[in-house]
């Protein structure tokens, strides 16, 4: 059975490995871009402007309310048209074409960003007012307070939530396989079809996903511990 996973022309080991690489690449890019979307949306939600707040609410409500699979299909079928239209707004006249990789990253990033937005908003709101007042009393300006107080404290609060968003993002990349992007799930699918051994290949994929999620969960826990350094424990904890 294991010879199915051998490397080289007879086995699927190298394809699966390459697929794993694509999965990690799509997830990482989508997570980072999603963080940008999320931070922007969170800022808009916390801003005083009603239109901005409404736009950000629409984004998070709509994207979190429809299945990620549907978002991916929509991007896959209609993505280029929409991007071309947006590019047109910025004065670019030509057609913008998206590769399957770009479509996958964009779709997963949009979903990831909507969840990240809620986490970031919650974390910023959780920053104790007293800390900001204390910073102001020390004569810090708004930008400095943001950089030295709000962001570091909020980041600490946001880390566990962002860890969850990352797990979600990795799992969502599996859905991109429906567009035939050669990521891990797609490779398991192709190998299953060619060898008629679906059980073996989907189990292999499951184990690899588990390894990725477990390793990254450990990394996030380490980061959380790092962020907790220098934080005074409450009594009794």
């Amino acid at each position: 059975m294991l010879e199915l996973l051998s490397f080289g022309p007879g086995g699927w080991g190298d394809e699966i490995l390459r697929g794993t690489g694509v999965t990690v690449a799509v997830a990482s890019l989508a997570f980072v871009i999603g963080l940008l979307f999320g931070a922007t949306a969170a800022a808009a939600k916390l801003s005083g402007s009603l239109p901005l707040r409404l736009a950000a609410d629409t984004y998070t409500t709509v994207v979190r309310g429809v299945p990620a699979l549907l978002v991916i299909w929509l991007f896959f079928f209609g993505g280029s048209g929409m991007v071309t239209w947006v590019a047109g707004l910025f004065g670019y006249g030509g057609r913008v074409e998206l590769s399957a990789f770009a479509v996958g990253v964009a779709a997963v990033a949009v979903v990831s960003g909507a969840y990240a937005a809620e986490v970031i908003r919650g974390a910023v709101q959780a920053v104790p007012k007293g800390q900001i007042e204390a910073a102001r009393a020390l004569g810090m300006r708004r930008r400095l307070i943001l950089r030295r107080v709000t962001v570091p404290v909020a980041l600490r609060y946001a880390l566990p939530g962002l860890g969850n968003v990352w797990q979600l993002t990795i799992k969502d990349t599996a859905l991109v396989s429906v567009t035939a992007l050669a990521e891990l799930m797609r490779m398991a699918f192709v190998a299953s079809g060619a060898t008629r051994e679906p059980f073996f290949f989907y189990c292999t994929a499951a184990v690899i996903y588990m390894a990725i999620t477990t390793l990254s969960a450990a990394a996030f826990r380490a980061a959380e511990r790092g962020a907790e350094r220098g934080v005074r424990r409450e009594a009794g904890r």
Binding site: W73, F76, F77, G78, G79, S80, G81, R95, E97, L98, S99, A100, V178, T179, A180, A182
Partner: peptide, 17 residues
């Protein structure tokens, strides 16, 4: 030559992929 999902293969052509 690249592999594409059959469902979206015509829309992908129209979209210029």
């Amino acid at each position: 030559i690249t592999a594409q999902a059959w469902d979206g293969i015509i829309p992908g052509l129209q979209a210029g992929k």
